[in-house]
Design a protein around this nucleic acid. Structure first.
Length: 429
DNA sequence: GTGACGGAGGAGTGGC
DNA sequence: GCCACTCCTC
DNA sequence: GTCAC
């Protein structure tokens, strides 16, 4: 079916959407382009210094359109790409599929988008795009349609459907709200974040997400993250110097800014996950909770999202500074990893996702399975069809690379986003 | 043509 | 209280 | 939606 007849009515609005200044987070730059906070539940003094809340704005978040990603989609630097417009279309298709409950389609569009971001010249056709990994028949056709008509039929929504999609995307920017809950809140008639705050059935996690919606979207500069990490390390080692504490994620990969603080902990006494995570006594006295309690007592942790025996999710903040006032609240995750799994955990939680995927595939091809729990080889029993697992003893990240016959990559060399996989694999041969 | 695509911890809910 | 399930997160 | 099998 041709879309030509739809175009005159819809194109101007689409163009307007692209032109509209990005008031919050640009989907591709991940930079807050205008510093206006959504001060929903003020938590700090109005005289809070440089970081104080600027003003209450209920209108701003509503202006976010479908061209802007929900907070949870991966950020990709496409500013410099000669195919930025095509990438934006794929990003919107990915969001649409996420909201339709199709995570694999969402990832397929994201994968195609990453390939195209890494492509150095302007694409002239879908066929040309199809030479790239992750771009198949369907996406090639959509690219052709976009190049010919300036739009893609699947993205053309009626005004009311567009408003609904925008609201679903807005609500998903709240931590703890995914596509299902966002849709249900829209169906219930909520039209804004202020509206949503009145919902009595918001979970604890969602209330925290709403309270800090703007602060969680702010990037953490590396020097601030180093200070945050230092506090965690000091508090932990005061409890017991035998703890090992390491920040993972983009920070360990050398990033100048990060989205959150992801810390893994281990301790020689912790060698396996407790059998029953619901054993409250054990949770309260666990090696992880001792650290959490110390960090709560000193005011570093301001809110908790979830507290388990091996995983803590919460909110942290640097201590009040005399000149700057209160600092921004950030998301923090703490994971307690069994001592013997520490290096596998360190490798997995350092990432990035694409690097993990490459290593897992490499492991699989050589008869192993690699996860944050370790490197395991499937051994076929001498008699019968049965197999059993042999856990490979890992004493460093390098060991995993060695077993998989890969040259060691330092953490800052594991930023694979935008790197063509073939190139990486060729380099390793 | 068909199955894999990461998968587990934690919160919350509803049935028993 | 237990269990199975959904949703969300990373 | 794409890819490997």
């Amino acid at each position: 079916m041709s879309t030509t007849h739809l175009l005159p009515a819809v194109l101007p609005s689409l163009k307007a959407t692209f032109k509209r200044p990005l008031l919050l987070r640009s989907p591709f730059s991940n930079v807050l382009t205008k510093q206006t906070r959504f001060n929903f539940q003020p938590t700090r003094s109005a005289t809070g210094g440089a970081q104080k809340i600027v003003k209450k704005s209920s209108k701003l978040p509503q202006e976010k359109t479908q061209t802007q990603s929900v907070n949870k989609s991966p950020s990709v630097q496409i500013k410099e790409s000669p195919n930025r417009d095509i990438c934006e279309v794929l990003e919107r298709l990915a969001i649409q599929e996420r909201n339709n409950g199709q995570p694999f389609k969402e990832r397929a569009y994201q994968k195609a988008m990453r390939s195209i971001v890494a492509y150095p010249t302007r694409l002239n056709s879908g066929k040309e795009a199809q030479t790239l990994p992750g771009v198949g028949d369907k996406i090639a056709k959509k690219i052709d349609q976009f190049l010919e008509t300036g739009s893609v039929e699947q993205l053309l929504l009626s005004k009311s459907n567009q408003e609904e999609a925008d609201l679903i995307n807005l609500f998903q920017r709240i931590s703890g709200i995914g596509p299902v809950k966002a849709k249900s809140f829209v169906d219930k008639g909520y039209k804004s974040l202020e509206d949503l705050a009145k919902e009595p059935q918001l979970t604890h996690h969602q209330r925290i997400g709403l309270k800090y919606i703007k602060e969680f979207e702010e990037k953490i500069p590396r020097d601030e993250l180093e200070r945050l990490l230092d506090i965690v390390k000091k508090a932990t080692h005061e409890i017991d110097p035998r703890y090992i504490v390491e920040a993972c994620g983009s920070f360990r990969r050398g990033a100048n800014v990060s989205n959150d603080l992801d810390i893994i902990l281990t301790h020689p006494d912790f060698t396996e996950v407790m059998e029953s995570a619901t054993d409250r006594k054990k949770v309260k006295t666990s090696l992880l909770m001792q650290v959490v309690q110390a960090l709560e007592n000193c005011g570093f942790l301001t809110d908790s999202i979830s507290k388990g025996s091996v995983k803590y999710m919460g909110v942290c903040q640097l201590p009040k500074n005399k000149t700057d006032g209160l600092c921004t609240h950030h998301r923090i995750d703490l994971r307690l990893i069994p001592h013997q799994n520490y290096y596998a955990g360190l490798l997995a939680w350092t990432g990035d996702d694409e690097h993990n995927r490459i290593m897992r595939l490499r492991a699989k091809a050589r008869g192993y399975t690699l996860s944050e729990y370790g490197l395991v080889r499937k051994i076929k029993a001498e008699i019968g069809e049965d197999t059993y697992d042999e856990k490979i003893h890992i004493q460093s990240e390098e060991d995993v690379f060695k077993v998989l016959d890969m040259p060691y990559k330092k953490p800052h060399e594991r930023n694979m986003r935008g790197v063509v996989k073939k190139k990486y694999l060729m380099h390793e041969e």
